[in-house]
Write a protein that binds this DNA or RNA. Sequence first.
DNA 1: AACTCGTGGTG
DNA 2: TCACCAAGAGT
Length: 338
Amino acid sequence: MRDFGVISAQLLDWYDRHARSLPWRVPQGQADPYRVWLSEVMLQQTTVAAVKAYFERFTTLWPTVHDLAAAPDAQVMAEWAGLGYYARARNLLACARAVAAMGGFPDTRDGLAALPGIGPYTSAAIAAIAFGRAETVVDGNVERVVSRLFAVETPLPASKPELVRLATLLTPDRRPGDFAQAMMDLGATICTPRSPACGICPIIDECAARMQGIAADLPRKLPKKAKPQRVGTVWIGFGQDSILVETRPEKGLLGGTLAFPSTGWDGSDLPPPAAGDWQELGLVRHIFTHFALDLTVKTAQLTANPERGTLLPLREFSPSALPGLMRKAFALVRPETA
DNA sequence: AACTCGTGGTG
DNA sequence: TCACCAAGAGT
């Protein structure tokens, strides 16, 4: 039987010597649940580098969950713009309002998991990091570290329950939050997806995949489907000192974000949102998670009131409030704003 | 269970 | 260039 206590102790020792300094990271026992929650939601499927500026901006604008709960929807969506996965922003606000109404964050994993936007990973992370509970945190990093440590060759996602079971055996009763962050840091900096730096790994002597020479091949994953290619058109229309925009429906792609009127992106045709001499500016290529999009960008000075969308005064308009795709489209109209 | 949902960095 | 992927959740 492997000595799990030795492995977790070695990892914590490495973490104490090499922990990265991050805006949301504080010693175990001093964490603010609000900041832990905010950072963990922002970090869902998003890199540390991309999150940093958003985290600083949000905590400056809204230092407490009560401040965030009182913020207007449109302002939160505008501040989230560019970070992606916009359901997170809508759930973030719903969660903040629920927590404010409850008077504070629940301090158990189950209590946290009942809130919008907090799933298996995030509930465990907040419970462990902010409340010191011995919950097991399993993200993509932990999946990779554990699959190598124990040489689990079953492909994901079928191996997930086994990886969770093994990670649970590793999780110590003391400092579970630091342990979780140690596992994730190890995965992010040493036990990386390609070319893992086994030579400087603090637990190389315990790694079964390393012993078998298959570390870089794990975790195995089932092949992914090809991305379909889709096309569409977006219209960027101008009125008198104004620009034609719309808020997209709450559900679906880019839900709830500020955008320019467009066709659906399934090839179906749709008339322009307003009369005007529409000129084709060019093509924007954008890769989403499950499809690639070629978006034709058209612009015009409007000659009649729009049938879709609303005219926003230009002085109230900032491309920073747009999701990335729409920023790219706008950059064809005003390259100097890109 | 499989699909939807963004974006930027990397090799 | 392009496929991969990053501190996942909701349905």
